[in-house]
Simulated assay, not measured.
Amino acid sequence: MRVIAGSARSLKLKTLEGIDTRPTTDRIKETLFNMIAPYLYDCEFLDLFAGSGGIGIEALSRGAKEAVFVEKNPKAMECIKENLKFTRLEKKGITLTKDVLNALYQLEGDKVFDYIFMDPPYDQELEKQVLKYLAGSSLVYEDTVIIVEASLNTDFSYIGELGFSLIKEKRYKTNKHVFLEKAGKEEIC
């Protein structure tokens, strides 16, 4: 796994051995960032279930002002910290070694994010729990884009009930990215 573009371009990132984390492949990461790159500069980025930190580090490398990394696995968090140091982005990264919902509660009232990315373990409905929390959270404002990486069969039919609308869905061979925003936002064409 490597950083694709920006200040840390081509630097190889460490990942955890084993199956505890599932790093987003370079190809999928490149596709994702091609979609959001024009809007990353000076943004606040939240990387939930951060694994080795590859998504948040990519955002920082491409100009995000700050990224918060949330990962409850201490070994994975150590990997994130090493990757931030190696890419010289540690001053722009905040790390929280705790459960995602506890971290969100801790950040409440202190941060507002432009992008929230989450890559929870597949098929456990953890994304649903996080979206339920974010539906009433001050961490999200009308322009926040929430991106969920999920298995192809993950159902998001409930998002309207939570006050979110689907911006787009990008499907890959084994998974998908679902882009959400607060419902009712006026579209400017």
Score class of each variant (00 low, 15 high):
residue 141 Y to W: 05
residue 9 R to H: 13
residue 143 D to A: 07
residue 40 L to V: 15
residue 30 E to L: 12
residue 120 P to L: 12
residue 99 D to G: 05
residue 71 E to G: 13
residue 165 S to F: 05
residue 173 K to I: 00
residue 67 A to T: 06
residue 167 I to A: 11
residue 88 R to W: 03
residue 94 I to G: 12
residue 90 E to M: 12
residue 26 D to I: 00
residue 150 A to S: 14
residue 110 D to H: 07
residue 125 E to N: 11
residue 68 V to Y: 09
residue 170 K to E: 10
residue 37 A to D: 14
residue 148 V to C: 10
residue 114 D to P: 06
residue 76 A to W: 05
residue 33 F to S: 06
residue 101 L to D: 12
residue 62 R to C: 10
residue 56 G to P: 01
residue 2 R to G: 13
residue 62 R to A: 09
residue 36 I to A: 07
residue 28 I to M: 08
residue 164 F to R: 10
residue 72 K to D: 05
residue 121 P to F: 10
residue 34 N to L: 06
residue 91 K to E: 14
residue 76 A to D: 04
residue 74 P to H: 11
residue 145 V to N: 00
residue 42 D to Y: 07
residue 188 I to W: 12
residue 13 L to W: 04
residue 55 I to A: 03
residue 130 V to A: 15
residue 169 E to R: 15
residue 75 K to N: 04
residue 183 A to N: 02
residue 23 P to K: 10
residue 22 R to I: 04
residue 139 L to Q: 06
residue 85 K to A: 09
residue 108 E to V: 01
residue 25 T to P: 01
residue 103 A to Q: 12
residue 135 A to R: 15
residue 128 K to F: 12
residue 130 V to L: 14
residue 2 R to S: 08
residue 51 G to T: 04
residue 30 E to R: 13
residue 96 L to R: 11
residue 90 E to Y: 12
residue 104 L to A: 11
residue 29 K to T: 07
residue 143 D to G: 09
residue 44 E to H: 07
residue 166 L to M: 14
residue 12 K to R: 12
residue 31 T to C: 05
residue 90 E to N: 14
residue 99 D to F: 06
residue 150 A to F: 02
residue 108 E to R: 05
residue 109 G to N: 01
residue 145 V to Q: 06
residue 146 I to D: 03
residue 170 K to C: 06
residue 65 K to V: 01
residue 111 K to Q: 10
residue 142 E to Q: 08
residue 114 D to I: 03
residue 148 V to S: 06
residue 28 I to L: 07
residue 160 G to V: 00
residue 74 P to W: 11
residue 116 I to Y: 12
residue 177 H to C: 03
residue 58 E to M: 03
residue 57 I to A: 09
residue 65 K to W: 03
residue 75 K to I: 00
residue 99 D to E: 15
residue 169 E to T: 13
residue 89 L to N: 14
residue 37 A to N: 14
residue 32 L to D: 12
residue 99 D to I: 07
residue 10 S to Q: 15
residue 54 G to I: 08
residue 22 R to L: 08
residue 123 D to S: 08
residue 44 E to G: 06
residue 164 F to Y: 11
residue 100 V to I: 14
residue 152 L to E: 06
residue 32 L to T: 08
residue 92 K to T: 07
residue 162 L to P: 11
residue 181 E to P: 00
residue 126 L to I: 03
residue 19 I to G: 14
residue 47 D to R: 05
residue 117 F to C: 03
residue 2 R to N: 11
residue 128 K to W: 10
residue 102 N to Q: 15
residue 86 F to Y: 13
residue 92 K to R: 11
